[in-house]
């Protein structure tokens, strides 16, 4: 499993807040650092893939467990 430098709790938040909070969190990080996001919005799965592709911040890993979605995004 990837080791994160920062954790963003986006549980209970709905579109587009998880993405907007992620963008903000990445802005406060250094290149190469990894942000772990925990979300409960099922739409987040497609959204984080799209966010990663368009912003060129690699989505290193993602997982789902017990209704929670976890994403690891590395700041480009």
């Amino acid at each position: 499993m990837v080791q994160e430098d920062k954790l963003l709790d986006a549980r209970g938040l709905n579109c587009p807040l998880p993405i907007l909070r992620t963008k903000k969190a990445l802005g406060e990080m250094n290149a190469g650092q990894v942000l772990k996001i925990v979300a409960t919005d099922p739409g987040a799965v497609k959204d984080f893939e799209a966010f990663s592709k368009q912003t060129k911040n690699p989505l290193l890993d993602q997982a789902e467990a017990g209704g929670e979605f976890v994403f690891f995004i590395q700041k480009a």
Partner: peptide, 11 residues
């Protein structure tokens, strides 16, 4: 506001 804020987050 949803589309504008998300687009801004995407650059």
């Amino acid at each position: 506001f949803i589309l504008a804020s998300t687009a801004a987050a995407l650059g």
